[in-house]
Design a protein around this nucleic acid. Structure first.
Lengths: 265, 265
DNA sequence: GCGATGATGTACGCAAGCGCACGTAGCCCT
DNA sequence: AGGGCTACGTGCGCTTGCGTACATCATCGC
């Protein structure tokens, strides 16, 4: 078995920072292992560290008092988690949990705060990333309102896929349903359709994407909108090797059994 | 007729800035009139100015290609619009339009950019406001998913009310339906229920809130969650005079005809 | 191997909200 | 004053997704 050594550069944002910043942060930067469903931040609890995912994925949830929740944001190795405010060890009303197990670099928030006060490249990157985040959340909100579960599943799979180096998603239907704020059965039905036409395959808790170009065409515009904004504002990201822009057709309708029609045409 | 002279201090955020900042901005700060439904920023168009609403309200919409839209954010005199990135005259994929006519102070974005580079109090405020914005959007997303139109209407009315000095909302059902991303008829039905129990009254395009405490009790938790986070992070805001915390009951169910039940209990 | 556990498949009734259609009634303009 | 525009009211059939219930099936630990 090959064990690859992780480096800070595995987080794209860390990799984009200058040697000066790394000099200041180096010995405070810890590599920590994150297990599936670990809760990185509890709602309204102080946040002591900032996390830069290397190969883990973390999603941020807003939980309602009835227990229902949606995950309007997802963070992988393209950015960081917990920079909010950076003024004190403040909290947010959201909860963050590990969506895909892996490693992340951890840094005391104090250092990030100090870096802010130097107002250099890091601040610039944070402002850009904030804009990406807002787009991500708002587009997801519009998507929830107007698109079918089928389409939302495609979007979710693609956003997750973009943050992984392979095409296997370790997540159950149950988990996805929590993230999208829908029923588990709804996810199962949508996933079944995707499997029946050969776009994905899956077994217990493991989804394998077989035909990503097609998945992109089956997704609604929301995936591309977020992706476009991300690429525009975070130029330090490596181009995703699996994306292809061959499809000039914005959305695709499957022949026969599967038609992921929008709810409000 | 009494014409009150508007001052920069009518925008709370402008009012919270130090005299030094005002010295730098003073002669560049223009008072502009905004008419209902004016589009302040078109999607993907360069943003040349930053707006500080005095008594206008502006909502930010994410529009889908099918024409459907939701307004995940609302900005009144508590903050500003268009500070995103502040690095260049960049654009966003969202559209911003005037939800309530009035005046706003306008400033070339260049000056805001320069203020950022001084990284002082203004930056601090912006980071806090960013956090509020994210909460506002994400909570609205969760609300869209899990709460009824009845509840969402209450939330919308309250958020709008918080940004006005009186209790009259100049908006049609049609407009609200666009903001919430639902049908016009759905808004009419929800509004009728609220009127029947005496919480609001309305005529063509004008809604008057008669019983705000009750409106708050009829709203879902989402209004309070956003408000709480706003007050925590933007301490420069004046306390809303109309709010009362008398209700320890988190949600209220009307006797008889009206029961704004959550969609997923 | 084999049961326990947990993930997935499927069905049925129900309610919210949608699309559509059309009726009604303020308000403005001439 | 009256006509027209626009906003509001209301009903009907339909679809999506929800809640519930239960069946199947893969994996894991023993």
């Amino acid at each position: 078995m090959v064990v690859r050594t992780l480096l800070p550069q595995d987080n794209c944002l860390l990799g984009a920072l200058s040697p000066e910043v790394h000099d200041r942060w180096g010995r405070h930067l810890d590599l920590v292992a994150l297990s599936l469903y670990d809760v990185v931040y509890h709602a309204d609890q102080p946040m002591r560290y900032v996390y830069f995912p290397a190969d883990a994925i973390i999603s941020v949830q807003y939980v309602l008092s009835c227990g229902a929740s949606s995950a309007p944001m997802v963070v992988g190795n393209e950015a960081l988690l917990g920079f909010n405010l950076c003024r004190a060890e403040e909290s947010t009303p959201s909860r963050s949990l590990v969506q895909s197990a892996g490693y992340a670099y951890r840094l005391p928030r104090r250092l990030v705060r100090e870096e802010f006060n130097r107002h250099g490249e890091f601040l610039s990157l944070m402002l850009r990333y904030t804009q990406v985040l807002i787009t991500q959340i708002a587009q997801a909100a519009a998507c929830n309102r107007h698109h079918s579960i089928d389409q939302q599943l495609c979007r979710w799979l693609l956003h997750s896929l973009d943050r992984l180096p392979h095409n296997r998603l370790t997540m159950t239907h149950e988990f996805i349903s929590n993230m999208l704020g829908v029923r588990r059965e709804g996810v199962t039905q949508a996933a079944t359709k995707l499997r029946d036409v050969g776009v994905i395959s899956y077994t217990r808790g493991l989804i394998t994407v077989l035909d990503r170009p097609r998945l992109e065409r089956l997704s609604c515009e929301c995936y591309r909108a977020v992706r476009k904004e991300t690429e525009r504002l975070l130029p330090y990201l490596p181009q995703c090797q699996t994306i292809n822009n061959s499809a000039s057709v914005p959305t695709m309708t499957m022949e026969g059994s599967y038609e992921p029609a929008s709810r409000s045409a």
